[in-house]
Structures are given as C-alpha cells and as structure tokens.
Design a binder for these strands. Structure first.
Lengths: 118, 118
DNA sequence: TTCAATACTCACCTCGTGGTAAGTATTGAG
DNA sequence: CTCAATACTTACCACGAGGTGAGTATTGAA
C-alpha cells in the first residue's frame, strides 16, 4: 500500500490516515521524532531496534512525501542528515494518542489474563 | 501479522492497537458495526464494496478472537449470523475518531492541492 | 595507503496478505 | 428433483512489504 496506488479514493478519514501510518515502523518513527524533536538517521536506527536500513529510509522517504517529516541535509563529511516532524506529523502523532491509550489498556488486559492462566 | 505471531511483545500502545486494526477492512468493519449496531454477514458484505467473502470472514474471526466483535448464530434455515461490537470494539472505534478527523483534514488538504494543479 | 564513519543504494529473496473461484450444508419453494 | 438463499470453507495464486547483505561516495585520521 505504501508504494502502490496510494492517495486512492478514500472511503473515510480513517482510510486516509491509515494509509499514511501503515508500515511496520512508521508509528514508532513518529513517536521517536515527537519525543526527541530532531534525530539523525543513525540515531533513529539505533532507537528502533530491529529496523533495517532499507525500511527505515523507505519509510522516512514516504513520510517526507506525505508531508509528515522534514529532512535536513548538512553537507559535511561524514554526512549528517536530521529528521524532524512537520506540523502535520505532529498533529498526526497527537491524533494517535487516544489509540495509544486504548492499546496500552489492551496490553494491561492481556497481561492480566496471562497472569490468570499461568 | 494477522495470523502469525500476534500478541507479541509490543513496544508501545500504538503497536498493540495497530496490531488489532491492521487489515484491509477492519477499520471499515468497525465503522459499519458502530453505525448499524448489528449487521448480518451478507449486510456487511454488501456494505463494504469490494471485500471478498474470505477476507470478511477472516477479519471478523480475528476481531472476534481479539474481543472486538460479538458473533451471534441463529440456528435457522437459511442460516442467520449477526455481528455486533463488544465494549472493547466500541471503545476502539471511539479511540479511532481523532485519527479519522485527522484523515478527513488530510483528504481536504489533498483535494485543495489537486484543484490547484488542475 | 588503508580504514573508519555516515547515509544511503541496490539486487535478491521470503513470506504473509489478500483476491478468485469453486465447493459445502441445510431446507423450503416450485 | 432442482434450485435458491445463506454463511461459510477450501485450494490456489499473485503481489508487495519487508529482510539480508553487499556496494557507494567522501574525507580525515593513523
């Protein structure tokens, strides 16, 4: 969905938002950038354990194209690139907060059930 | 992610919520059930243009297992099955509202840019 | 002269998601 | 005896998301 026919006709707002957030690491990138304000590529990679360089770049590029992320290149050697959230990225992260709260509650529910079983 | 190693260790609440919502039609099923309260299988199928029976059932089963959807079977001929949201499904749908608002705003933004181009 | 550091870029492969189409069980209507 | 209606179930297939590992460019340090 990320590289294919995006920006297709959306059925509702959820569709349009999910299209932009769907991607294994996107919500985490959003969270990381919202927390630190500005992060270099390597910092993001180390901050998201398990992410591959390919996917990190691919997601960052898509989020830049979607107007969520700002990419600032400093022409130095070794190169330095800093990523930060745009206004839309910040508002998206805020819009995700209630979903995060729900997910946290779900985690606690699962943990409670787990402790009953064991 | 849907049938594989779900319920894995989540990094944050967003993760846990996205795991449950990810699936091409799940957010739409949620929306449909929230709007109508109770829907039969065939009604859902007709209400989600383009969905295949296989995916609709698969999603409904997963959402039932995740505690979002209640499935009520009436032993009649021809068979009748009614789906509705559980308490958790309803709260998830509410948690998605701010995301939907953001997505709607994004749609309007895209439409505005589109009209500038053409 | 070689190596380290950084931010990529590329080729290749696996596997899961989702689509298609046909089949199943049940019973009443014609 | 056949067919319609409903809610699945199953087998098969295509495609794209995402992982792996190697390669690239640049320049200062050893």
């Amino acid at each position: 969905m990320a590289t294919g026919a995006r920006r297709g006709p959306y059925i509702c707002g959820i569709d349009a938002a999910m299209d932009v957030v769907s991607g294994k690491w996107k919500s985490l990138i959003l969270w990381e950038l919202a927390n630190y304000g500005t992060r270099r590529f390597g910092e993001l990679r180390r901050g998201l354990p398990g992410v591959s360089e390919k996917m990190l770049i691919q997601h960052l590029r898509e989020m830049e194209e979607d107007g969520l992320v700002h990419r600032e290149v400093y022409r130095e050697v070794p190169p330095r690139v800093e990523y930060s959230l745009t206004e839309h990225g910040t508002s998206l992260n805020e819009a995700l907060r209630s979903l995060g709260t729900w997910g946290t509650a779900r985690c606690e529910r699962l943990a409670a059930e787990e402790s009953l079983v064991s």
